[in-house]
Design a protein around this nucleic acid. Structure first.
Length: 467
RNA sequence: GGCGCUAUCGUCUAACGGUUAGGACGGAGCCCUCUCAAGGCUUUAAUACGGGUUCGAUUCCCGUUAGCGCUACCA
């Protein structure tokens, strides 16, 4: 059975690049009726935090793409160690007693001098004496045959052993490194396909060596191009702020489906001209052939914190939402009861791009007192304050008695404009500003209807005072 | 520095040797219209550079340049 895994490490919030990796794994699993495994790669005890673990689960839960199995690497350390020592026993790893502080530096580093050729006896003796060591893989640097693997996205890959350093398997504190833990788990969990970021492409040579040393057949690999910032650098919270965190998208009112859709279009294409796709369409269309090889820019700026395409997709999905569903989704963003929201929803559905826009675009529905506005805005096009006052006074009379439904209001106010010998637009604008506190608002009659007679009369009266 | 990967409109991408280099977002304009949206139409803009191979290169090969990744007892 096909088995894929998503293996985040809890050293930070859930990054949108990680989210895309998760989504691609999920799509691949679903497309092939395989299993999706979530594995928390928490081998770096110093950098792990509960906060990031929470953030990861929070983000994944919002994505609403359920996984089938779940593991945590820290529960499986014994397994990783055993596999490391089995590699050691085969002579494919050795103890390196070089203190950590003396390492690093310029140029190519392959191994620490003197440690590869320590005799088994001496190595054992020093270890028994309590001297700390790391367990290193013994790469066959003199082997002229390249290490090879096939990547489903990047094709045939090969690298000379002479260019691969003796990487660590076990740290001096006994905790397995990422390479060791990851491979041991991939073997033990029978992972058939590893789909991950391209930053692991060159690590894969090391992993190939581990699989071979452990006597396991390597899985299939598919590396994904990275998501980068407009300046070409990698996305980081420190440099680019909250836009790189999944929960930020949720908090600003992205729909899960729009967010997933957007991420899928970064580095992958269905190869036809489809852009807006449902989850099922994505599952059906997803394949490694559609994955690109070059990094994709998430196009945000300081003024526009979200990629315009993500925003556009979100607006598209909002427009297709059933009104009751939209009203429900809106409720965390605005102070209004559900039945009021159901009335408002149709008026703002095609006027908001993010759910959070409702709070600003439709504020006048929720506020008791309108925020201050410029009385000049009450004056109609090619009109003067006197015209505004006349129009508003007439509106007051009409609204005092009219039926409060939009057909009646439409007819009544148009008739009023005709009586006053002004254009309908000149009649409507003062009313709109009086009632909404702004020039740009949803259609007038529906808005009046939702606001109700009392509020409308009160606000128009207040507007007349301002003139 | 070494090794690896990548390079089509501003951005996301399509074109797997032959196209007026297509679509989408964004921008601009027009139409519709009680404002704003939405919708419709039009428009804007690209094969990084230099060599090959070929009747013919966005596409294949080499080089240059640029970007990214790995080069840790991070993942």
């Amino acid at each position: 059975m096909l088995r894929v895994r998503f293996a985040p490490s809890p050293t930070g919030f859930l990054h949108i690049g990680s989210a895309r990796t998760f989504i691609f794994n999920w799509l691949y699993a679903r497309h092939n009726q395989g299993a999706m495994i979530l594995r928390i790669d928490d081998t770096d005890v110093d950098r792990n935090s509960q906060a990031s673990l929470d953030s990861i689960f929070e983000g994944l839960r919002w994505l609403d793409l359920p996984w089938d199995e779940q593991y945590r690497q820290s529960d499986r350390v014994d397994l990783h160690r055993q596999m490391a020592w089995r590699i050691f026993e085969k002579g494919l790893a050795y103890r390196d007693f070089t203190p950590a502080t003396t390492q690093g530096g310029e140029g190519t580093w392959l191994f620490n001098p003197g440690m590869r050729e320590l005799s088994p006896e001496e190595s054992r003796r020093r270890a028994d004496a309590g001297e700390p060591f790391v367990l290193r893989f013994r790469v066959a640097h003199d082997d002229p045959n390249p290490v090879k693997f096939h990547d489903a996205v990047y094709g045939e890959q090969s690298k000379l052993p002479a260019d691969i350093e003796d990487f660590a398997l076990l740290r001096s504190n006994g905790i397995p490194t990422y390479h060791m833990a990851s491979c041991a788990d991939d073997i033990d969990l029978r992972i058939s396909h590893i789909i991950r970021g391209q930053d692991h492409l060159t690590n894969t040579f090391k992993h190939g060596l581990i699989f071979e040393a452990a006597g396991a057949a390597p899985p299939q690999f598919a590396h994904l191009p990275l998501l980068i910032a407009p300046d070409g650098s990698k996305l980081s919270k420190r440099k680019h702020g909250p836009v790189v965190s999944v929960t930020t998208y949720r908090d600003y009112g992205f729909l899960t489906q729009a967010f997933i859709n957007f991420l899928c279009l970064l580095g992958w294409s269905p190869k036809d001209d489809r852009e807006k796709m449902s989850r099922q369409e994505l599952v059906d269309a997803f394949s490694f052939e559609g994955i690109n090889r070059s990094n994709a820019v998430v196009n945000f700026t300081e003024q526009e914190p979200f990629d315009p395409k993500a925003v556009w997709l979100n607006a598209e999905f909002i427009r297709t939402l059933p009104l009751a569903e939209l009203a429900g989704l809106l409720s965390p963003f605005v102070p209004a009861k559900f039945d009021k929201l159901e009335q408002i929803a149709p008026l703002i559905q095609e006027r908001i791009k993010l759910l959070s826009d409702a709070a600003t675009v439709a504020d006048f529905f929720f506020l008791d007192e309108l925020p201050p506005y410029d009385p000049e805005e009450l004056i109609p096009q090619k009109g003067d304050p006197a015209m505004a006052i006349t129009a508003l006074k007439r509106a007051l009379e009409i609204l005092a008695t009219a039926d409060f439904n939009h057909q009646a209001l439409d007819a009544g106010l148009r008739a009023g404009a005709q009586d006053l010998k002004i254009k309908p637009g000149q009649m409507f604008q003062p009313i709109r500003v009086a009632v909404c506190g702004r020039k740009n608002a949803p259609p007038l009659f529906e808005t009046l209807e939702v606001l109700g007679r009392d509020v409308c009369l009160k606000r128009i009266a207040q507007a007349i005072q301002k003139l």
